[in-house]
């Protein structure tokens, strides 16, 4: 019973701190959401007939562009956490009865859960307004791969923020992860494919790394028949990374 009450209190503290983070970052959330909502509304109103004919092909190019805003929002939230850890305010919050794990879970909720909910809402709402019957035809596999990619990105940048506690390093690592690494992997894959006609170990390795880190981009390029199955390893990887963040925070986080 006491444990249950403790858990309840812990959840209440996480909720309160998450609300505080939301308040602090409300302007950024609103700005990003407005941009994404505008793009999705325009695309849905003008492209719904082709979207209804072939949902995945019509939706994917747009989502590949707007998802950048989604991933950069996650990086920005990790950046804010690194700023808090590096510049001192975190010590103040943690001196309250807020545990380190609770502190980190609040950031995860604000950085991963909230952004994912807002992003998915901005996709589904215009479809719902135009034709509610079409909501069921939205390709859930595409949305799932997008969210998994966001989770892996978030887990990586939160880990960097926690380890370095430097906002600059976190933001830089996030941007490199989002923009440079996929490009570099594609170039390596192209060079290997051009040099050796048959599939080599290097090519397989590059593809596997790409599938693991960028399930949505992998889906857009390779179009696997079972997108959920190919993005499951990414979900597992993000869980492992988030778990290691929590373990690190519990054992080694000093503020």
């Amino acid at each position: 019973m006491r444990r249950l009450l403790g858990l309840q209190a812990s959840v209440r503290r996480i909720y309160a701190y998450t609300a505080y983070i939301h308040d602090r970052l409300a302007k950024g959330f609103a700005a990003a959401s407005v941009v994404v909502s505008l793009a999705h509304s325009m695309a849905v109103v003008t492209g719904l007939p082709s979207f209804a004919t072939d949902p995945s092909s019509a939706l994917l190019p747009l989502l590949m562009m707007t998802s950048l805003i989604y991933y950069i929002s996650i990086v920005y939230i990790a950046y804010s956490m690194a700023q808090e850890l590096g510049e001192g305010p975190a010590a103040l919050y943690l001196s309250h009865p807020l545990g380190r794990v609770e502190y980190l879970l609040s950031w995860f909720a604000a950085g991963l859960l909230t952004t994912s909910i807002l992003y998915l809402a901005s996709i589904v709402a215009p479809v719902l307004v135009m034709d509610p019957a079409l909501v069921s035809s939205v390709d859930m596999a595409v949305l799932a791969t997008l969210v998994f990619e966001g989770l892996v990105t978030g887990a990586f940048v939160f880990l960097v923020a926690l380890l370095t506690r430097r906002r600059g390093a976190t933001f830089f690592a996030g941007l490199v992860y989002i923009l440079v690494v996929p490009l570099a992997l594609s170039i390596v894959a192209a060079i290997v494919a051009a040099a050796v006609p048959r599939q080599t170990l290097v090519e397989t390795l590059v593809k596997t790394v790409f599938m693991l880190l960028y399930p949505c981009k992998y889906y857009a390029i390779e179009r696997p028949t079972n997108a959920m199955a190919t993005s499951m390893p990414s979900a597992l990887l993000s869980l492992v990374l988030l778990g290691s963040c929590l373990v690190y925070a519990k054992r080694k986080l000093e503020v």
């Binding site: 939301h22 959330f29 909502s37 325009m42 109103v45 003008t46 909230t114 909910i117 807002l118 901005s122």
Partner: peptide
Amino acid sequence: MLRVLGIIAIVIGLVTALLLAYLS
């Protein structure tokens, strides 16, 4: 978060209505 969800709903509702009216 409720506020941001509300803003999203308002933006999508308004933009969609305006686009529907103008494009038609």
